[in-house]
C-alpha cells in the first residue's frame, strides 16, 4: 500500500458517498446514467470473484464488498425509489458494444486462459469504458449539477491515482500488472475531456456546461 493507491481508493469511496448524497438530497437521480451504474455492477461482480475463494485480506475484502453492495444499492434506488427522475430517453448509449468489446479484449489479453482470469481482465477493460454512457448523457443534456460532476471527477480520479501507484510499485517492487495499467491509462484518457472542463469550470466555481 502506498499513498497513491490509498488516495485512489479513498477517491473511489468518496465518489460513491457523493453519488448517494446527490440522490438523497435532491431526491432525484436525474443526470445519472443507469447504464453506467449497471456496468459498474458487472465490473465489480466479475473482478471480485476471488471473494469466493480468497485470500481474504481484510482491507481488500471490506472494500470489495462495499463496492459491490453500494453499486447494487444505487441500481436499486434508480430502478425503484427514484425511478421517475431517471432520464431514460436520453440515457440510451449502446452498452452492448462496450460489453462485447471488453469481452474480446479479455479473451485476447489475460494472464491465463481460465474463467477467473478472463473475467478479471474483462472487468478492467469494461471499467475503462463504463463511464461512457454517463459522459454521453452529460453530452446530451449539455450541463450537469455540480454535485454530479464531483461524483464523476472522484470516480475518474481513482484510476488516475492508480497510475502513479503502478509506477511506484514497478520501481519499488518490480511488479507490473500490464492489463490493469493499459486499461487504467485508457480509462484516464476517456475522462480527459471531462477533467478539462471540470478543472477549467467547476473548480473555478462555474456551472458545468459544454459548448453547444
Amino acid at each position: 500500500m502506498n499513498i497513491f493507491r490509498l488516495l485512489g481508493d479513498l477517491s473511489h469511496l468518496a465518489s460513491i458517498f457523493i453519488l448517494l448524497h446527490k440522490i438523497r438530497t435532491t431526491k432525484s437521480c436525474a443526470g445519472i446514467s443507469f447504464r453506467s451504474q449497471a456496468l459498474y455492477v458487472l465490473v465489480y461482480l466479475t473482478r471480485y470473484l476471488d471473494l469466493l475463494w480468497g485470500p481474504w485480506l481484510l482491507y481488500n475484502t471490506v472494500m470489495k464488498l462495499f463496492f459491490i453492495g453500494s453499486s447494487v444499492y444505487v441500481l436499486y434506488l434508480m430502478k425503484f425509489d427514484y425511478k421517475p427522475s431517471h432520464d431514460m430517453g436520453l440515457d440510451n448509449f449502446k452498452v452492448e458494444y462496450l460489453i462485447g468489446g471488453s469481452f474480446v479484449m479479455a479473451l485476447l489479453f489475460n494472464l491465463a486462459f481460465t474463467f477467473d482470469e478472463v473475467m478479471w481482465s474483462f472487468s478492467l477493460w469494461l471499467e475503462s469504458v463504463a463511464i461512457l454512457p454517463q459522459l454521453f448523457l452529460l453530452q446530451r443534456t449539455g450541463e450537469a449539477e455540480t454535485i454530479t460532476t464531483h461524483y464523476i471527477f472522484a470516480l475518474g480520479a481513482y484510476r488516475a491515482l492508480y497510475i502513479p501507484n503502478w509506477l511506484y510499485r514497478w520501481v519499488m517492487e518490480g511488479r507490473v500488472e500490464f492489463i490493469a495499467v493499459f486499461a487504467g491509462i485508457i480509462q484516464t484518457i476517456v475522462y480527459a475531456d471531462f477533467f478539462y472542463v471540470y478543472f477549467t469550470k467547476v473548480i473555478q466555481g462555474q456551472k458545468f456546461e459544454l459548448p453547444a
Binding site: H12, L57, W120, R175
Partner: peptide, 10 residues
C-alpha cells in the same frame, strides 16, 4: 513469485 499471481488491487 507466487504473490505476483494474486491481484491485490481494487
Amino acid at each position: 513469485d507466487e504473490l505476483a499471481d494474486v491481484h491485490d488491487e481494487l
